[in-house]
Simulated assay, not measured.
Amino acid sequence: MSGLLSVPATVSLRRAHHPMRRRGVTYGPEGETHARHHPPPRLRARHPHRGHLAESSVGSPGTEGRHAAHRMLRAWLHTLRDRLTVDVAAHFAAQLPDLLRGAYYDGWDPSTAPVKYDREGYVNRFVQEAKVTAEEVPRIAPAVTGVVREHVSPGHLEAALEQLPHDIQALILQPTG
């Protein structure tokens, strides 16, 4: 049987177990170790820091600041979502990180979208959901817009905001000082 490679019966064709390698651990190209249930650092998704909103100009540090910041973010997401058509709302949601997407869709009834309201209606809805005063909305809404902008692909926020009336756009996009 010339041409055929003969392999002794004592040699296994499977990869031999290396005595220095441990089970449940993967080894990177440079020999670094990683537990199998955790991806290597270079492959791990980048998640926004939990306290990011509380540390921004939206809320103050601490537990109550975090809760207030999340309430304001949620109010911002819901007031935007409710004013958009279903298609635009879904397209915008697809750009959001999972945590924000969950807050965005929470309690949404697409059969009622879009809800038509002007600047005053926007402020009233924001005040009711965020539990802030109407005087605070011109400061808070643009700050939240800046935070959301950091978490979506360039141009997607602007595409969604183009669907809003100009007076609401002006409120949401005004510079924070």
Rank of each mutant, 00 (worst) to 15 (best):
K116T: 13
H17A: 15
H70P: 00
T10E: 12
K131H: 12
G59M: 06
R66L: 14
H156E: 12
S56M: 03
T176I: 12
H70L: 14
E162F: 03
T63N: 01
S12T: 01
S60L: 09
Y117E: 13
E150C: 11
G107N: 09
V86P: 02
P61A: 12
E30W: 10
A90L: 07
S2N: 11
V11A: 14
Q169P: 02
P19S: 13
H37R: 11
E136C: 02
L77C: 13
E64L: 13
T10S: 14
A94C: 12
S57F: 02
A134G: 15
A90V: 06
N124M: 13
A69E: 02
T33A: 15
H91C: 00
P48I: 11
L157I: 05
A130W: 01
L84A: 08
H52G: 09
H156Q: 09
V115D: 12
H17L: 15
A45Q: 05
G155L: 10
L43D: 13
H78G: 04
A103P: 00
L161Y: 04
T26G: 11
Q128E: 12
P138M: 05
G177T: 04
H156S: 10
T145N: 13
A69V: 03
H18Y: 10
F126D: 03
L4R: 12
G146A: 09
L96D: 05
M72N: 06
A143L: 03
R23I: 10
H52V: 08
R50H: 04
V88S: 08
R66S: 12
A170I: 04
A134S: 15
A89M: 07
L77F: 05
R44N: 07
R36F: 11
T85W: 07
L13F: 01
G121S: 12
L96C: 09
A143V: 02
P97C: 06
R66F: 09
H78Q: 03
V132Y: 01
